[in-house]
Simulated assay, not measured.
Amino acid sequence: MPNASFVRRSLLAALAGCAMLGAAAPASAQGVVNVYTNREPGLYSATLDEFTKATGIKVNAIFSEQGLAERIRAEGANSPADVLITVDIGRLQEAVDLGIAQPLQSKELQQNIPAQFRDPDGLWHALSLRARTVYASKDRVTDKAITYEGLADPKWKGKICTRSFQHQYNIALVAAFIVKHGEAKTEEWLRGVKANLAKRPSGGDRDVAKDILAGVCDIGLGNQYYVGLMREGQNADQKKWGEAINVILPTFENGGTHINVSGAVLTKNAPNRENAVKLIEYMTTPEAQRVFADINYEYPVRPGIPVNKLVASFGDLKPDSMTVAELAKMRGKAAELVDKVGVDR
């Protein structure tokens, strides 16, 4: 596989030629689809270009890290947005809660995306999967398997690092814990995890690996794709962080690994609905799914697509059987419990 950072830079450059950033086409235009996304444009540019070649439909993309769902709601019936592509079930559910999503029933999407990774009413569809894993020091941790419940074991006292527990990635994990064990046991678990922290939660997932290398902690929580970005990127320091850790795929007791998603929403007032449906369906084709695997080190949502070799080396992913929609319902309660326990304080 080509150097990942080179490919990513090339895709970013290609975006300028295949998408218009910041200026969507008029709603009356034919043969276009307008995408709002807070995902790095380089992940999609090659796929969008191939979609245009295959269909003749031009893709106009607007990229912003924050506020896209609110923007679509503010634009109302005049919004040019056809598709919102975003990360984390929290942001997908936000689009639903803001009333900017419309149902999409597609036989192709139903065939390509397992039911647990689709909204029951078709209001969002996952495009890729990410696992909430454990980063473990290569030098100081001999454990090969860890459960999420085990993170509260006193054996890890003073040895765990993590980003804020109010961050969407950790909120989703806490929500999944509630689905598995209920609120009372989740609160108890959070108190145990807090007691095991080596430092106040801060930074991002890359910083967890950095702290492990520095000896601040021995294990921490992080999504699997950051390890690929660190190890195969161009930043020399981050390479060291990534190489200092092993990745363990944790499971719930009598369950599987917690999974979050990136996904797509068909907007309520999509002016180019037919083209938008075609694009979302195209994103689940084998060609598009391989981009998620090879460029961003994510797990393809479509079964049968090969996983990136580095990610595959972490072990066989066995997703927990809970639906992503189930954990979406518990996100508010999860945030309340994190605040009640004061995990971030």
Rank of each mutant, 00 (worst) to 15 (best):
N3H: 09
N3R: 07
S5R: 07
R8L: 02
R9G: 12
L12P: 07
A16R: 08
A19F: 03
A23T: 14
A25G: 07
S28V: 11
S28P: 12
V35K: 02
P41A: 09
P41V: 13
G42R: 06
L43F: 12
F51V: 02
T52R: 12
T55K: 00
G56M: 11
I57T: 03
K58S: 14
V59R: 02
A61F: 10
I62F: 12
G67E: 11
G67F: 12
A69I: 15
E70F: 12
E75Q: 07
A77C: 04
P80C: 01
V83E: 04
V83G: 02
L84I: 11
T86F: 09
V87S: 14
D88N: 14
L92Q: 00
Q93E: 12
D97G: 08
D97C: 13
L98M: 13
K107V: 15
N112P: 08
A115K: 12
Q116I: 14
D121S: 05
D121R: 06
A126N: 04
L129H: 10
R132Y: 15
V134Q: 01
A136F: 12
K138D: 11
D139C: 03
D139V: 14
K144N: 14
T147P: 02
Y148E: 02
Y148H: 13
L151C: 15
A152D: 02
D153A: 06
K157W: 14
F165C: 05
Q168H: 14
Y169S: 13
Y169W: 14
A172D: 08
L173V: 15
L173W: 00
A175V: 03
F177S: 01
H181F: 11
A184L: 12
E187I: 07
E188I: 01
L190Q: 03
R191H: 13
R191K: 15
V193A: 05
K194W: 11
K194P: 05
G204L: 10
D205M: 03
D207A: 03
I212F: 03
G215D: 09
D218N: 10
L221S: 05
L221H: 10
L221P: 04
Y226L: 09
V227D: 08
G228E: 00
M230I: 07
G233F: 06
G233M: 00
K240P: 04
K240I: 13
K240V: 14
W241F: 04
W241L: 06
G242S: 10
A244R: 00
N246S: 13
I248H: 06
I248M: 00
P250I: 06
F252A: 01
E253Y: 06
T257L: 13
T257M: 01
H258M: 11
N260Q: 14
N260V: 05
V261P: 03
G263E: 02
A264W: 13
N269P: 12
N272D: 13
R273Y: 05
E274N: 01
E274P: 10
N275C: 06
V277P: 11
L279T: 04
M283Q: 08
M283E: 08
T284G: 03
T285C: 05
T285Q: 07
Q289G: 01
Q289E: 11
V291A: 04
I295Y: 09
Y297G: 04
R302G: 05
V307Q: 02
V307T: 08
L310T: 10
L310E: 05
L310A: 05
D316H: 00
P319D: 01
D320G: 06
T323F: 10
V324H: 00
V324W: 04
K329L: 13
G332K: 07
A335I: 11
D344G: 03
D344H: 05
